[in-house]
Every structure is written in structure tokens, then in C-alpha cells.
């Protein structure tokens, strides 16, 4: 795989196919944990780590375990259990060996099990028939894309948090409208990567 192709996968997962803003994956943490920049970044880093590790584990399982035995349909069950176990293990690992990181990310890890972006990226890697390296790159790009969305949105949230909203739009409703406007600006980049990388 050429370097440009690798860049293409990562950048398109960040910009044009942003998981949060164009594929609607990981909306819950996007809306829930974006109030403060610190929390948003902690969550994002945790998501990047889990996404990459989960892909590194689930891709071989699918390719070397499920598919050869004709039980590809067990994907969903196996993946979700693997991810749940993985998150637990990462948490134990961090607690034991990198307590500082565990302190920073610990509270976000359990929330990630039910983050559909993680399961989504694992399934989509298989669906898109990516090879192992491509899958890892795609997962990393998706995680970074999630981070970018969180970063942008955390800024917006900090600005509009104490606004004087109309009664009906208090809370989640106005947050969604803000997300709508935020996702608009990502549309402007469509076609850009194809042109840059000559895809």
C-alpha cells in the first residue's frame, strides 16, 4: 500500500467521512461529554486507543477464526463481547502500569463499551474489505475524526452553554441544532481528498 493511499484512508476518515458528523456514530458521547474541552479530549483519546486496539483484535478474529469456519454471522456477538472484554482489560492494564493515564482516562473507558463508533468501525472495516493495515489506519483515522469533531464541538458548546435559549430549545434540542451547523462546514471539503490524492 502506498503512502498516499494510507494518507487517503486516514484523512477521509477524519474529514469527509467523519464518523460523528457524517455517519452519525458515537453521537451519545459527542453530545454528552463535549461540554468541557478537557473531558472531550480525554474521551477522544480513550476512543482512539480503544478503536485501534479493538480493530487489531477483531480483524484477525473475523479473518482467521470466523470466516474460515463459516460462522461469519457470529460477528456481532463475538465483536461486542470482545470489545467489552478488551475495554475491561485496557482498564486493568492502565490501572496497573500507567496509573497516571488511568486517572485521566479511567472514567471514560466504561462508557466506550456502548459507544457505537467502536463496534461500528470494527464492522465497517470488515464490510469494506480492508486488509489489516488499512483497517488499523481507518480505525485510527476514525478515532482522530471523532477527536476533531469533539474538539470543534467543545468550543461551540463552551460559547453557547450559558445562552438564553427559548424555552423549548433548552438543553439537548439546541445542542442538536448546533451540531447541525457544525456538520455543515464539513460538507465543504467533499471531493477535496479525491482531487489531492488523485483517487
Amino acid at each position: 500500500m502506498s503512502l498516499t493511499a494510507a494518507f487517503y484512508i486516514v484523512l477521509s476518515a477524519i474529514i469527509t467521512n467523519n464518523y460523528v458528523l457524517s455517519k452519525f456514530l458515537g453521537i451519545c458521547p459527542f453530545l454528552g461529554v463535549s461540554k468541557k474541552l478537557d473531558n472531550a479530549m480525554g474521551m477522544s483519546v480513550a476512543v482512539i486507543i480503544v478503536m485501534v486496539v479493538a480493530t487489531a483484535v477483531t480483524w484477525p478474529i473475523q479473518t482467521y477464526l470466523l470466516d474460515p469456519n463459516g460462522i461469519g454471522y457470529m460477528q456481532t456477538i463475538v465483536f461486542i463481547l470482545v470489545i467489552a472484554a478488551l475495554v475491561q482489560m485496557i482498564e486493568i492494564f492502565l490501572k496497573k502500569y500507567i496509573p497516571a493515564l488511568h486517572k485521566a482516562l479511567g472514567i471514560y473507558l466504561p462508557l466506550i463499551t456502548t459507544n457505537c463508533a467502536v463496534l461500528g468501525v470494527c464492522v465497517l472495516n470488515i464490510d469494506n474489505e480492508y486488509n489489516f493495515l488499512q483497517s488499523i489506519l481507518n480505525s485510527f483515522g476514525s478515532g482522530v475524526g471523532f477527536t476533531v469533531a469533539m474538539f470543534l464541538f467543545a468550543g461551540v458548546r463552551s460559547k453557547i452553554e450559558t445562552n438564553d435559549y427559548p424555552e423549548a430549545f433548552k438543553g439537548i434540542a439546541s445542542t442538536l441544532v448546533a451540531a447541525s451547523i457544525t456538520s455543515l462546514c464539513f460538507l465543504g471539503f467533499s471531493g477535496m481528498l479525491e482531487k489531492i490524492f488523485g483517487m
Binding site: G155, G188, S190, M192
Partner: peptide
């Protein structure tokens, strides 16, 4: 955007993205 994206004009997208980055 002008040089690479599929839209001919990027001013409004550019300003919107910077609006979002303003905080």
C-alpha cells in the same frame, strides 16, 4: 477548497469553520 474540493468556492465554508474555531 478552491484548489482541491469539488465546490468552486470555499469562502463561506472557510468562514463557518473559523466561526466554529473562534472559541
Amino acid at each position: 477548497i478552491r484548489a482541491y474540493a469539488s465546490y468552486p468556492e470555499g469562502v463561506s465554508f472557510a468562514i463557518l469553520l473559523m466561526n466554529i474555531l473562534t472559541p
